[in-house]
């Protein structure tokens, strides 16, 4: 089937350099463009001062000037629901919907057409907010984030809302972290540096790659060690799950966006923990025509021992996408 998958970058990828003020917001946009990617994704509260409030007119003008200057397009804003902003008080559904609408207005103002909906948003809230998203022509995508997969009961409940409403403005955003075939060594090695037993770590990695259910691995490790740090290694297998990419096939027409999560890119453009080529082939075969946005999340696992180079990591990730036929 014909596909027209496009490449983008989540500026979340550059969080290390941005936080350390080595890169400005404009630098992040420029670095994205330099990879040949054409789409921009942001976590609003990370990239834009004042978010979730509507940015000033001056900022909005500046934002679109940058989009023109670097020939890129706003693609997705990642939304969060701060259920517990005030001690002891949890959002009612009405408060959650109001917060969500604020994100919709924010995204709309900056030209984003997609909102990544945080995975713990309930189907009830989705149903209430869909008409507002339709009015603003914003597509909402529930984040299919590990340990959930696209056929998890939680996702099925969201799918039911998509079906029931018949809306074109609600779908799925699979996160590539849900296809973690092999545990990311940057994560494992960080725990070893923090004192985890290398032999136990090796065992956990082997179990994970074999597809052994995480709970069994955790049980086995609890018999080998009573140290918290060793359990933390075992629990990596619970948080970084692998689903067969074929599971996306039946939902292809509901996939509005893809998060290209990655932990470490090798010099020869391979992400060792995630079988990107397999997932991309499923997306291509299914005729997916949205964006895959690079989302580098390795920085936090190496920042204790080396300088993080997010720009290089993203560049390699984008090259990998090109190598797999995403032009």
């Amino acid at each position: 089937m014909n596909h027209s998958i496009k490449r983008g970058v989540s500026l979340y990828s550059y969080q290390e350099e941005f936080f350390l003020k080595k890169m400005s917001l404009e630098d992040c946009i420029a670095a994205t463009a330099a990879t040949g990617a054409t789409g921009i994704e942001i976590v609003g509260e990370q990239s834009i001062p004042g978010c979730p409030n509507i940015p000033s007119d001056k900022f909005v003008v500046q934002w679109f000037e940058w989009m023109d200057k670097y020939n890129v397009t706003p693609v997705a804003h990642d939304m969060f629901l701060d259920y517990n902003k005030k001690k002891g008080h949890y959002y009612t559904d009405e408060e959650a919907v109001e917060s969500f609408k604020k994100d919709i207005r924010f995204a709309h103002k900056l030209g984003f057409k997609i909102i990544r909906v945080i995975v713990n948003t309930t189907p009830q809230i989705m149903e209430k907010v869909i008409p507002y998203a339709e009015d603003h022509d914003i597509k909402l995508g529930i984040e299919v984030h590990a340990p959930w997969h696209i056929n998890s009961p939680w996702m099925t409940r969201h799918w039911e809302v998509m079906e029931k409403t018949g809306t074109k403005h609600f779908g799925f955003i699979p996160d590539m972290g849900g296809f973690t075939k092999r545990l990311a060594m940057v994560q494992v090695n960080r725990l070893i540096r923090q004192g985890a037993d290398p032999e136990i770590a090796k065992f956990v990695c082997e179990q994970h790659e074999k597809g052994v259910m995480a709970e069994y691995t955790i049980y086995e490790v609890s018999r080998m060690s009573d140290r918290r740090i060793d359990m933390a290694v075992a629990e990596l297998s619970r948080h970084n799950t692998f689903a067969n990419p074929i599971s996306l096939k039946e939902h292809m027409d509901r996939i509005v966006h893809v998060h290209g999560k990655f932990y470490d890119m090798t010099e020869d453009f391979i992400e060792p923990s995630i079988p990107y080529e397999d997932v991309i082939n499923v997306l291509k075969d299914g005729g997916y025509n949205g964006y895959i946005c690079s989302e580098y999340e390795g920085n936090r696992h190496i920042q204790d021992i080396q300088e993080v180079d997010s720009v290089l990591q993203v560049k390699r990730h984008q090259q990998m996408l090109v190598n797999y036929g995403v032009k």
């Binding site: 969080q15 976590v43 509260e45 990370q46």
Partner: peptide
Amino acid sequence: SHWYRALPLSC
């Protein structure tokens, strides 16, 4: 704050 996302002071 060194969290990756802005937080309100109430948090």
